[in-house]
Amino acid sequence: MSVASVKTVEKSEMHPAQSGKPAGPRKREKQGRLAFWLLLPAGLAVFGVIIYPIFRTLIISFFQVNSALATDTPFVGVDNYVHVLGSASFWESMGRTLYFTLLSTALELAFGLIVAGLLNAKLRARWLFRAVVVIPWAIPTIVNAAMWKGIFSAQYGALNALLTQLGIIKEYQAWLGDPTTALNMVVLADVWKTTPLVAFFLLAGLTSIPAELYEAAKLDRARWPRIFRSVVLPMLVPSISIVLVLRTVEAFKVFDIIYAMTRGGPVNGTQTVAYYAYTTAFSDQNFGVGSALSYIIVVVILALSAIYLRLLRRSEMSLL
């Protein structure tokens, strides 16, 4: 998200300068002072809360800390990082997180596009439709997780009942009982909740496409797939890139839905890297390693965001 929006900001930075009079150094300094005072409350509220924990955690990641009360905490340098990077369970959870992230983001984009397209269509009860679509997004994650846990329940679940009644499956299945299936089911629950958000972002992009562009394309007798490819998609690139980065960051940090639905099981099949970091730090009380893990997560998120943006910029649909 950050990079994307900074980009947009950067672009429009020209805006004030263009329309206003050329700012002299004195005026600029005055503005600087005002900006400082205007930003001070936000700065206090955000960094006042996080700056100390950030550094504290960074420092802890270089020490061996086995207890929240430990007084004997030897300095171990990068050993914690080495330990994490050398552990099989870390890479497994990383793999699962990547799978979760890519699959859920891809599905959310695909469904989001469809829903956005439908929402943009000139239907009579559009407001009602939009209100309905917003529902899953408004339901709290924990409630959402509990609800899907119920739907997937092996004994009472609606999914089992539905599929059996339709004759698709003969026996009730434990949907959360197999590691791979369980992960897919968690993805499904996440997609259900988040697609509306994605759809609204994309819809915002869609509504900003000028009608003339469609007209022009139609005059050229372009078919829908072509219009979509050459008109709609390029115009949507900014929204898509924002959504991609936003969702990737979120999906990579996913914790609450896992905690509420599966607690990482079965066979660690749904243990994502953030959940892994949580258990390492709090259940195993390995705070040094846990802190190192969370910094690795930050680095990966940064790297992923950068890669996305670069890919999008390189592709021919470069509007950034």
Partner: peptide
Amino acid sequence: STKRIHRTTVGFALLASAALMLTGCSVT
């Protein structure tokens, strides 16, 4: 520290971690 971050972020980062190290007490 919050005031300062608006001006010199990198410098501040170093400063803060150094200060924390110097104050000495155990990391927990």
